[in-house]
């Protein structure tokens, strides 16, 4: 592989970023819908859209519930769809614990809204081909998931 080939693979064909407002349950899910509409517009296959849409929605809800603010970035590469979710929240103290199904730090109020079942992150992982979660306490969390284009 020539060096510029690798370069062209790193530069996405399309990159778009959206802000997500923490704590706002009224607009929660809107960014996910926008991302999904974009993917439909460029004729990504329905099955892949479905999987990324689920990742988007769960990740967006995580920002809304736990972080003051955050952003979602969609990168389209020739071989994969990448979703990067960054927030400036409190961070996740124990990632292994957070990845366990049913583990949740949701408050009573969130649970009353029907959230916080502890299935979010495991659900994202199940739907993604690559999953990378990093977090620094007091600084925030970055999630990077990708879905391979078939």
């Amino acid at each position: 592989m020539r060096p510029d080939d690798r370069q062209s693979d790193r530069v996405p064909l399309l990159k778009q970023r959206w802000e997500v407002q923490g704590g706002n349950f009224i607009t929660a899910g809107n960014v996910s819908t926008k991302i999904k509409d974009l993917l439909k517009e460029i004729q990504i296959s329905p099955d892949l859209i479905r999987r990324l849409a689920i990742c988007c929605y769960e990740a967006e809800m995580n920002i809304v519930m736990y972080a003051g603010k955050g952003s979602m970035t969609l990168e389209i590469h020739s071989s994969e769809l990448v979703l990067i979710v960054e927030d400036q929240g409190q961070g996740i103290p124990d990632i292994n614990l957070a990845m366990q199904e049913g583990w949740s730090t949701a408050t009573e109020a969130m649970r009353e809204k029907g959230f916080g079942a502890g299935m979010g992150l495991p659900n994202i992982k199940r739907n993604a081909d690559k999953f990378d979660l990093t977090s620094k306490l007091g600084q925030g969390t970055t999630l990077r998931v990708s879905i391979t284009l078939t």
Binding site: L13, L14, I44
Partner: peptide, 11 residues
């Protein structure tokens, strides 16, 4: 159906 490059160009 168009390929990804064409679809992105159209977008």
């Amino acid at each position: 159906e168009v390929n990804l490059i064409e679809a992105l160009a159209r977008r």
